[in-house]
Nucleic acid binder design. Structure first.
Lengths: 233, 233, 233, 233
DNA sequence: TATGAATGAGTGTTCATTCAT
DNA sequence: AATGAATGAACACTCATTCAT
């Protein structure tokens, strides 16, 4: 019936932290949108705070620099994407199929969410990259593939580099509205892994239908896409 | 013994044009150096004019914006590199060998001229790219390769994209001082073209000794490297 | 056995006041330390509250502005120093001796407590001053000295000015780590009072040993010095 | 009848330098006025540029920081004052008389030019000081005085300190509109030098009439005073 | 054509102050 | 009374661009 002092303090602490987290989310969401729209060198702190509808000073309560905001945003968005891709790709598939499917899912995800597409394409290596997504989804994956004979012995950092910059290049073309032969790209990536031509083409085929992960309503991607749609009619 | 008025005017015009060209060269050289050092977003007009030893106003007599200066600089430097690579690579070699050799020459050229290395690696796709070098060296090359069966039928823009961003990624690692397995990279690129693994490894081997083009003393690369060496001891 | 309502309220009031006083002391101590460290224009409210380990808002419950905090701090510290000096200087000594001894004690006190030294030297006339110390220790002292023939008839505010700014200048040199001839300074001050050269030199001699006041453990100076020592190793 | 290229360049150079010097003077004059009005911590770059009627950017073409502007201003104004005082004080006078006269002239100068008064009083030791004026007017002066027996052997830095902070204190009172006994102050300063009381009083007497230096119309002091008068009716 | 001073919009950063909890 | 997040005015500094000489 009556609260102790501790209860009160605890309550305050909890409420305070929740509010803080909420503001942080708001800023992150705004950062993602602005960076997606204007790229790394086109966005300034003012854009972010205006998009978030908060004051200049508030930004500095959460970040030190605009790069810091980007860093935080890309980590948050990257984590979500990793989980989504992870949910979709069956761990039992053979390595080449898994790489191919991951790529297809990631690219299709970007196709369907311009927010993600523009964020990735415009920030390039300053965004989280498909390479890092793959690494986080399955560390040790490349070594296993080599050992099982699915892949050839190609330096891992070379593969990750090519996956990363290759995906960025593809997304750039998608963003530009070009027709893109995604299967050809995926096949090329598999050949970087060491697959032969026919194998690569075979494994790169896109499943039909391509099953996409379901996106929680309160995810950055969902909320961001809604806001994005409003401002990009 | 005496000159006509026309002669005089003509002489003046010629002298004027020569002076203008000289100033332009000076600004281009300065631009290359500054962009190589500070990248796209780190360089401002002041850096260029101070490096060239001219006044602010002069810059605007030759360029509209700093991006304009970069554009001019990359075209000039790109043209030189195209010629150099062209000089070195024997047009009689089989297609895969020619791609491989071009890549080796280009990368080695960059290795030996930090100016070129840093310009390419730091500017990335804002620099001229290896892809465009290859296109200019031999347009129609890819189609011929496909027709002759040397390459498989892979979309040309995909290949050029991968060559471009792949080379940039490799140069980035070289610039960072990392050990880079260039042959593995070249082989991967050849597999993008559709070669099988063994063929790709075979064709990607770097000739020993690798013959580099001789660089004219009055080229941008030569003059720039000298100036570069002075300021980067 | 049971308390009346009045008793309860009274108790609450007393407890509340004690708590308030405690917080005030904490803020004053923090203010002294921060101002000693960063001077008048280098310190902002945040420094004080962080040093005191309280929240921003609390500051405003006790002070209106940062200058207000300084004012309160200097008065509190000034009062302590006055008492300390007063304790040490024998009221029976002849006037010149008393001035000289006060100066020696004050300067030595500052020498031994960097907190006091830096607070005084860095804040200058925004600190409490030796002049005001003397005034509070013995009002009417100057007039008495003149009447008794110990001092000449020199405008009192002139003397206080010179004592104040002179002491600050000396402390500045001490803080800077210079060798300072304190006796020469004291003699000069006595000559401002009107003493002849030889007299001034004679009266300015520092007693050996110089007896310093004992500093209560719960004084600002003692507590501040302990905290100061922790943060200035 | 015709100019050579060299002549043209030379002319341009001279014109350019003259213009630059003029703008510098304008900024210095504005700096002096603003600092005199608002003190060290009250003035910001905007005040100076608005007072000078130029743009923000222009300030940075001449100074790095506001402190830099102050430094430049104090040196310029200090130099003028040194010359003025120097012009007035007869080098043949005995040392004590010279010190006394210098002080009288300086203080009277400040009295008659509020610009100088407020600049000195408000900036305190951040202004040029009387001590430094004296040093520049006659280096070696103190040592000579000691050797000739006019002064006693008192540490020179002590004397300069006292002259400096003492003069500032006096000017502060003058600025505040108080009645100030300047002769008593001068006498006190002479006693710091080691003079006996009667000698000090005798030598400190202000000549009547006190001859002041004539101030050139294009001096900072003259121009500044005119501008000052306009804005301080 | 070359010069370089002047401009001012744009941006980052600080910090006193308010206020809901 | 204590907290600390939010605010926004104030200020420093940069840099592309213009223009008189």
């Amino acid at each position: 019936m009556s609260e102790s002092l501790d209860d009160v303090l605890d309550h305050r602490t909890r409420v305070g932290q929740a509010r803080r987290q909420k503001m942080l989310d708001r800023l992150i969401e705004a950062s993602i949108m602005v960076f997606a729209e204007r790229g790394l060198n086109g966005t300034v702190i003012d854009h972010v705070v205006r998009c978030a509808g908060v004051s200049r000073g508030t930004f500095y309560n959460y970040f030190d620099t605009i790069e810091d905001a980007l860093e935080t945003a890309r980590i948050a968005l990257g984590r979500e994407v990793v989980l989504l891709v992870n949910d979709t790709v069956d761990a039992e598939l053979p390595p080449a199929k898994r790489v191919a499917l991951s790529l297809h899912v990631f690219i299709e995800l970007a196709r369907q969410h311009s927010l993600l597409l523009e964020f990735s394409a415009r920030l390039g290596r300053h965004s989280f990259s498909f390479g890092s997504v793959l690494c986080q989804v399955e560390p040790g994956f490349h070594a296993d593939g080599v050992q099982s004979g699915a892949f050839r012995d190609v330096p891992e950092e070379l593969i990750l580099d090519m996956l990363e910059v290759g995906t960025i290049a593809i997304l750039g073309r998608v963003m530009a509205g070009e027709e893109v032969d995604v299967e050809a790209f995926v096949a090329a990536m598999l050949r970087v892994y060491g697959l032969g031509f026919e194998e690569s083409v075979e494994a790169a085929m896109r499943p039909d239908p391509l099953v996409l992960p379901s996106i929680p309503d309160d995810s950055l991607l969902a909320r961001g896409s809604v806001a994005w749609a409003k401002s990009h009619p």
